[in-house]
């Protein structure tokens, strides 16, 4: 056999070195092309969800993640005013558990929440194999290799931004909540019809939630599974599935679609789009109820008297102006 200049070992070494150089270049480019601020103008995705970067370090005690149901239905300002708990909603439209995991990791880089609330209907979002691979990558290496998310910024890159460190200045008054005063009632039939059946949770979602559980344990964070009232994305089968899931992992699960009278929920006044998302009125009711639940079950600090948190009072005044109810 003739000796080729490409022996197995030299091929392997060449390939490994090539990939290392590629990885380093991608890391460098990720740093250069990432947005250096978290304002809307900076090009960051979902500025509302990423506003926690500019909150004072370690000031957020509750992190809420999930999809649009979470940012429509959870109101940090209501929670603040009635209970003094500091929270931030880092939810994104169609966020799946892998996305929640990635978001949590980002939150933990500058905040130390005591509790994470995960909105659960994102667990049932169907994703194909390619999306799962991308999501898995993003949840593990999405931060250092942010170039895959931000590569389109090549069009808007400003040279002075390229090499400087990120400095976050955005101020989100609502702490991630999306306000909507629109009222579009849902007046259809009852959707929480009791049954013994369960809907299968995609295995990839379960894996991602298990990783969230692990992350919380490692950081001494409590985890609460929560489902906002949502006629279009919830039903009893899903309730059973998540209840089983939570029980197996010894996690609390609060389903706000059941016994909605507990907090005077009214589908004719509390939804902005006919049964999918809540409006500001709905969010207030729901958050008041959640606050009571948290007070009973968790040991969270009431910061209302603390002068370091005076900005929250100002923000609440601004919030009141915007909700008009």
């Amino acid at each position: 056999m003739e000796k080729s200049k490409n022996t197995l070992s030299s091929c392997v070494i060449k390939s490994v070195v090539f990939l290392l150089i590629l990885a380093l270049l991608l890391l460098g480019l990720s740093y250069m092309m990432a947005p250096k601020d978290n304002t809307k103008a900076s090009g960051i995705t979902n500025p509302n969800a990423n506003g926690f970067y500019s909150e004072p370090k370690n000031s957020i005690d509750i992190a809420v993640v999930g999809n649009s149901d979470a940012y429509s239905g959870f109101s940090p300002m209501e929670l603040w005013n009635s209970f003094g708990y500091t929270s931030y909603v880092s939810a994104e439209g169609l966020q799946v558990p892998a996305g929640s995991l990635a978001m949590l990791k980002r939150i933990l880089s500058c905040q130390t929440p005591k509790l994470v609330i995960l909105e659960t209907d994102g667990m049932f979002t169907k994703t194909d194999a390619s999306q799962n691979m991308v999501n898995a990558f993003n949840s593990v290496l999405g931060e250092p290799f942010s170039i895959f998310r931000y590569h389109n910024r090549w069009k808007k890159l400003k040279w002075k931004d390229v090499l400087r460190k990120p400095y976050y200045t955005a101020h989100c008054v609502t702490k991630g909540q999306m306000l909507s005063n629109k009222v579009k009632p849902y007046d259809g039939k009852e959707y929480m019809v009791e049954t013994d059946e369960t809907e299968k949770i995609p295995p990839f979602s379960m894996l991602a939630v298990d990783k969230i559980i692990k992350l919380c344990k490692e950081n001494n964070i409590e985890l609460l599974l929560l489902e906002m009232p949502s006629e279009s994305s919830w039903n009893y089968k899903r309730h059973n599935a998540v209840k089983k899931f939570a029980k197996e992992r010894d996690l609390p699960f609060v389903d706000l679609n059941l016994d909605r009278d507990r907090f005077d929920f009214d589908w004719t006044t509390d939804s902005r789009d006919g049964g999918n998302h809540l409006n500001t009125r709905g969010a207030r009711k729901v958050t008041q109820f959640i606050g009571k639940y948290l007070k009973e079950h968790y040991d969270l600090t009431d910061h209302r008297g603390n002068p370091n948190y005076s900005v929250w009072h100002e923000d609440y005044k601004e919030y009141l102006k915007q909700i008009k109810i």
Partner: peptide, 21 residues
């Protein structure tokens, strides 16, 4: 050689029409 390959890969990563939007 490697500059050419790396440039092509980076061109796809940066200028490829994929991702949000």
């Amino acid at each position: 050689r490697w500059s050419i390959y790396l440039s092509l890969i980076l061109a796809v990563v940066i200028f490829g029409a994929y991702g949000p939007g």
